[in-house]
Simulated scan of single mutants.
Amino acid sequence: MSQQLINRSEDLQRLAKAGYAIRIESGLLVVDEIPYLDKDGRILRGVFACPLDATDDSTLPPSDHVMSFSGGMPHDRYGNPLASLGLTSPRCRMLGSLTFQHGFSNKLRGPNGPRAYESFYEKVVTYENLILGEVHAVDQSATARVGALPVSESEDDPFVFPDSASARAGTVDLTAIFKDEVVAFIGLGGTGSYILDHVAKTPVREARLIDGDRLYPFNTFRAPGAPIRSELQPPPYKVDYYATRYGSMKRNIIPHAVYLTPDRFHLLDGISFAFVSIDPCPEKALIIAELERRRVPFVDVGMGLHKGSNGIGGTLRAVLSTNENRDQVRAHIPIDPGGNDLIYQNNIQISDLNSLNANMAVQLWKGFRGFYADFGGPVWLYQVETRQFIREAA
């Protein structure tokens, strides 16, 4: 995903040394300066792009044979669309200002039938040759090997290795919505840790973890993943454990092993969104008030579970609070540990319900930012007994 990956990958180094103008952006291998013929026989330049399968220090063989193309449809020397490319839908539609209008589907054949591309070098060269053969009928000197190596993304990239999942799904333009997001996670318990699990798969600029609790064995039974015994001896702070665990994939996860009290509200400086995953308490009332004062949108979550004669029942809750709806949703955010909100103090937590509550929170966030089409309200409830989601009026 950066110049460092190009330097470490034999496959990408081979392309660079051959003179291809390669770069890596948003989980895609991008090759600029691809010459092609338009229907009138003019030589124009386009751009290849395909999802880059890679670890943090090397590429893997391409798992997909399709090549996306930004430019006009390549033609042969006689003005016909180049049939050998095999037209299909592009895997990538948008990348910054680039629009990918075409998808090419050329499958290699081995002695026993179709075979996969063994490297990205082979994939790029194969598609280049299909187009360049016709270009050379007009100009023998035309080449994609222009010797340029544009400045690529740096170690400030959001991920340790490329997000080829978004590249393959064609959602690069949508995931880019999150690139400037600085997210605070206030509370890393069962639900908060699952929220982090989901958000860590997005390119947010910074994930700021705030929780003063340690991770004990019982916590791990309602949280994502599975630690090894030595990681819990002695019990680490939750924020340190999760920063290390997700730091192997996501950059800029910043742990703060403290409780968020007024003297530490500076930890909220610069945030653009917050997830509040703590029980009702006097401190929570101050945190909510501070987020509102700072005009920071946030999602508050909670689970009210009880054990009855028929098993566990109760309600999950996720509330999106924005500058436009503060007054309407405030009553749905329990901040007083007494009275009618006592249900949220119950300590029954089940990993699948923690995960579901986190899913609700993350979908509200993504819908608010425009990643999902969103026509629902800001208050979302789930009834365990009936397995029904409820959109409650704010």
Rank of each mutant, 00 (worst) to 15 (best):
S2Y: 03
D11K: 06
D11C: 00
L12P: 00
A16N: 13
D40A: 15
I43W: 12
I43L: 07
A49C: 09
P51F: 07
D53V: 05
D56Y: 06
D56I: 02
T59D: 04
M67S: 05
R77Y: 10
Y78R: 14
S84P: 00
S84F: 04
P90F: 09
C92Q: 12
M94G: 01
H102Q: 08
H102P: 02
G103P: 11
S105M: 04
K107E: 14
L108T: 05
P111W: 03
P114T: 10
F120Q: 00
F120S: 06
V125I: 15
T126S: 05
Y127H: 11
Y127S: 01
E128D: 15
A137C: 01
D139K: 10
A142L: 01
P150M: 10
E153Y: 01
D156S: 12
V160H: 05
S164Y: 13
S164L: 03
T171I: 15
G189R: 11
G190R: 05
T191M: 00
I195Y: 03
L196I: 09
V199D: 10
I210C: 06
D213W: 10
Y216Q: 06
F218S: 12
A223F: 08
A223H: 14
P234D: 01
P234F: 09
P236Y: 07
Y241D: 08
A243R: 14
Y246V: 03
R251W: 01
P255S: 04
L260K: 05
T261N: 08
F265W: 04
H266A: 08
L267D: 13
D269N: 12
I271T: 07
A274W: 07
K284D: 10
P297W: 02
S309H: 07
N310W: 04
G311H: 10
N325L: 08
I333A: 11
N340H: 09
Q345W: 06
Q345C: 06
N346P: 00
I348G: 06
L353T: 04
N357D: 12
M360T: 12
A361F: 09
K366W: 02
G376M: 03
G377A: 04
P378H: 11
Y382A: 12
E392K: 13
